[in-house]
């Protein structure tokens, strides 16, 4: 359903505002003491709607996965690990990375948490702890998006990278994210990236 639906893919592409706009994390001044709150929340069992939908997404993925991605088989429907191959002709050609996708109880009403597992690709929008600065994963999520469309967006973000480098504020951000804070807790905001 996903791969054969051009509207949905176009949609995913059009959400990709790179490189004119980018998101920057706004860091809370005081790191919260109860940082595990979101990770426990994300471990809450999937709702019936979420479960049904993920089973169907997985079945469709197995029939036709998006090009360049490989689902690593597991019996955990709530956490998918996906292998991404850098597209030919881009800075990441021949390289392989791993995405970890965690689904909240009320998926798809809430966005999944998507991070790169160590080592994360060097990219101006990807922090060294694997957090990805991409609006559709946070404020611009829509329940009509799927794991598949999210993957396509991420690959497209990788492919259009002009240089293998970390975001400018990488060290400061990663320092503030210790204790395994979820990127969904970060208040990302749009920032003009022309400079």
């Amino acid at each position: 359903m996903v791969a054969s639906n051009p509207t949905r893919i176009e949609e995913a592409k059009s959400r990709l505002l790179w490189p004119s706009l980018r998101l920057l994390p706004s860091l809370p001044q005081e790191p919260k003491r109860t940082m595990t709150s979101s990770s426990t929340a994300s471990r809450k069992a999937l709702s019936k709607i979420a479960c049904n939908r993920l089973q169907k997404e997985l079945a469709e993925w197995q029939v036709g996965p998006p090009a360049g991605f490989k689902y690593k088989v597991s019996d955990n429907l709530q956490r998918w690990v996906i292998e991404v191959g850098g597209a030919a002709g881009t800075l990441y050609a021949g390289e392989t990375y791993q995405l970890q996708v965690d689904f909240p109880e009320h998926y798809p009403m809430e966005a999944p948490q998507v991070i790169f597992l160590n080592p994360a690709p060097m990219h101006p929008h990807i922090y060294s702890n694997g957090h990805i600065c991409l609006d559709i994963l946070y404020d611009s999520w829509s329940p009509a998006m799927t794991v598949s469309s999210v993957c396509i967006s991420i690959l497209s973000m990788l492919s259009s990278s002009p240089a293998k480098q970390r975001p400018q504020d990488n060290d400061r951000y990663v320092r503030n994210c210790r204790n395994g804070r979820s990127p969904k807790e970060t208040r990302w905001w749009f920032h003009d990236d022309k400079v």
């Binding site: 509207t7 949905r8 949609e11 709607i49 009320h106 009403m109 999520w141 829509s142 329940p143 009509a144």
Partner: peptide, 18 residues
């Protein structure tokens, strides 16, 4: 039912076309 939930919880936009 699910679209009403979306309008309530996610936002006042069409999930596919926005």
């Amino acid at each position: 039912a699910i679209l009403l939930e979306h309008l309530r919880k996610v936002g006042n936009f069409d999930p596919v076309t926005r």
